[in-house]
Structure formats: structure tokens, C-alpha cells
């Protein structure tokens, strides 16, 4: 339990560091993203205990869907705000996503080297 607290303090502290950078340097990026990059950088430098941070981070990542849910609720209350634009929104989302998936697949098929061993992926889940 103390490990979770230590990890949560790391996550909060790194977020605050991210916010500090965003404010001081007037970055057009959210504090969370800067914090995420800082976190990765710190771990690469072996600063901070991975066990502690993972103990607090894993449950938070698992709960991401629930944390954004209140934002999703809002979509049912804005129908009038964007009247007349729903066709544009629907086409952009449906056709746009189909097109971008197609592009990604074609690009990756072009760029990706063949798998080391056919049908037996070497990379294990980390």
C-alpha cells in the first residue's frame, strides 16, 4: 500500500513538473503529455522505482475508460449546439477512419521487415 502511495506521489510530482514546464516555456502541449515523456525519460535514467510507479500506474491506466466517461456523457447534451453539422461529423469520422486505416496498413506492409519466425512472434509481452 505504501508502494502505491510512493508511486502516486511520483506520478503527481511528475505531472506538476510537466505543468511547470508548460507554464514556464509556454508550450502548446498538455501537462499530462509532457509528464508522460518526463516519466519515460526518468525511467530510462533509472530514476524512480519502476515497481512503485507501476503499482500506482497500472490501476490508473486500467481505469482510464471510467475517468473519461463523464466527458462522454456530455455528447448526449450537445445535439442542438451542432445542429446541421452532424452529417459532416459522421462522414468525417466513418470515411476518414476507414481511409486512415487503409493507409496505415499499406504503409506498414511496405515498411515493415518480415517477421523473424513465421507465425511465431518472437517478442514476448512485457
Amino acid at each position: 500500500m505504501i508502494a502505491v502511495l510512493r508511486g502516486f506521489l511520483w506520478l503527481t510530482g511528475v505531472w506538476l513538473a510537466g505543468e511547470t514546464l508548460v507554464v514556464l516555456l509556454d508550450l502548446p502541449v498538455s501537462a499530462g503529455v509532457v509528464g508522460m515523456l518526463l516519466m519515460t525519460g526518468l525511467l530510462m535514467l533509472r530514476i524512480g522505482r519502476l515497481d512503485d510507479i507501476a503499482a500506482a500506474g497500472q490501476p490508473l491506466i486500467g481505469l482510464l475508460a471510467m475517468l473519461i466517461m463523464p466527458g462522454v456523457v456530455g455528447v448526449f447534451f450537445i445535439a442542438d449546439d451542432f445542429a446541421g453539422q452532424w452529417l459532416a461529423v459522421a462522414v468525417a469520422l466513418v470515411i476518414g477512419t476507414l481511409a486512415s486505416v487503409l493507409t496505415t496498413l499499406l504503409l506498414m506492409r511496405r515498411c515493415m521487415p518480415a517477421e523473424p519466425a513465421a507465425d511465431a512472434p518472437q517478442e514476448s509481452l512485457t
Binding site: T12, M36, I61, T126
Partner: peptide, 25 residues
Amino acid sequence: YRRGADWLMLLLGPATVALGVPLYQ
């Protein structure tokens, strides 16, 4: 509702930072 739920969404900040862990892995 949203005003109350904002307290919950506050956790999105540390949760986003936590995404750095799988990225590192």
C-alpha cells in the same frame, strides 16, 4: 453533474503520466 465529476477526472493527469511506464517497457 460535470462539476462533481471533475474531481474524478482530476485523476486523468497522473493517469496520463502513468502511460509513460508502458511506453518505457
